[in-house]
Each structure stands twice: as C-alpha cells, then as structure tokens.
C-alpha cells in the first residue's frame, strides 16, 4: 500500500480515528507523518501516531528535501551506516525497520528516546534465552527495577528515610545476584 499523501513511499503508519462514531483511516509513510504531525494538531493526540512521529522526528529533524541534503552533508551523524548489513539512516527512516542486530548499536542514539516513547521502559525484564538460571536472573532484574521505581517515587516525595531502606535492598540484591 502506498502513502496516501505523497503516493510514493510505502505506507508504514496506519492511523485510525473515530470521529462522531465514524471511522476514518489514514495510511501514510513516516516522512509524511512527520510533516502532518506539525500541521495537524488533532493527530498529535493520537497515542500510537504520536510515538511514531517521535521516532520519525528523531530521525528526520529537517522539514524539506533540500534542507535534508544540506544537513546530511554538513552533519555526518545524520547519515549513520551499519557496517555489518549496510543499513543506513535513510532506509531506517523509510521503513521503520532495522537491518540487523548490530543496527541497534549503530542507531542507538536515535533509538533510545524513541524506545522510551513506544514502550513502558528502556530495559528488557522478560524471558532470556536458555535455562532456569537465566530466568532467575530475569526475575532478579525485574525485582531490582520495581524497587528502583519505588525509590524514584520516594525520592520525589522526599521520603528519604524510606528511600534509604529501598536503596539498601537494591544494593543487596545487586551484590547477591
């Protein structure tokens, strides 16, 4: 399916809105989504779209084609290339996909804030490949993360005594794990 706005790039973002009980769909590419998000305040309220805009916004800081070329030649960090698979920023922006595992390191800067917007955290706390040992490690990490969250909240509420107890718990878990 092609992007409904530019009719050139494949549509990678599918937005659905319900206005007065009537459903409206919009299939667009990341580039047009970035442009549209600047011009259409209504769309900014849309959760999924918002996080995708943030992703494309991170990658494409410029607003038009000419500008982009200028910027990419002036600032080489905008044209990252993965040496393992040859994937680059442009391909990432166009498809929203990465080319290989290594790309996660190559595009880390772009990804870090995008991932935060897409997900409920920046760290994997689920299953790990292979055996019970790893699963135990996963549980431990989950526990540490939950305590860390509690600690942050306590610090924010300025309940420092309680916070110190939680901090000690975290340290103990880290040392034993």
């Amino acid at each position: 399916m092609l992007c409904k706005i530019c009719n050139k790039n494949p549509a990678t973002i599918h937005i659905q809105e319900i206005v007065n009980g009537e459903k409206k769909s919009l299939h667009i590419c990341a580039e047009c989504a970035a442009k549209k998000s600047q011009s259409d305040p209504v769309l900014q309220g849309f959760n999924l779209a918002e996080m995708l805009y943030n992703l494309s916004g991170q990658i494409d800081m410029t607003q038009d084609e000419e500008h982009k070329e200028e910027l990419s030649s002036a600032e080489p960090q905008n044209l990252l290339v993965c040496e393992d698979c040859g994937w680059d920023t442009a391909k990432f922006r166009k498809t929203g996909r990465l080319g290989c595992a290594k790309c996660y390191q190559v595009f880390r800067e772009i990804l870090t804030s995008a991932l935060k917007n897409m997900h409920r955290g920046a760290m994997h706390v689920g299953k790990r490949p292979g055996g019970e040992n790893n699963r135990e490690a996963g549980k431990l990490m989950l526990e540490i993360m939950n305590l860390q969250k509690e600690l942050d909240e306590l610090v924010q509420r300025e309940e420092y005594e309680k916070a110190a107890v939680v901090r000690d718990k975290i340290n103990a878990l880290k040392n034993n794990g």
Binding site: L115, M118, M123, R128
Partner: peptide, 13 residues
Amino acid sequence: DLGYLTSCPTNVG
C-alpha cells in the same frame, strides 16, 4: 538490556 532484537523497534524486548 534490550532483550530479543527484532527488525521493528516496536517489538524489541
């Protein structure tokens, strides 16, 4: 840190 690596970052973890 990131868990299972997927082609689309929306699935990672």
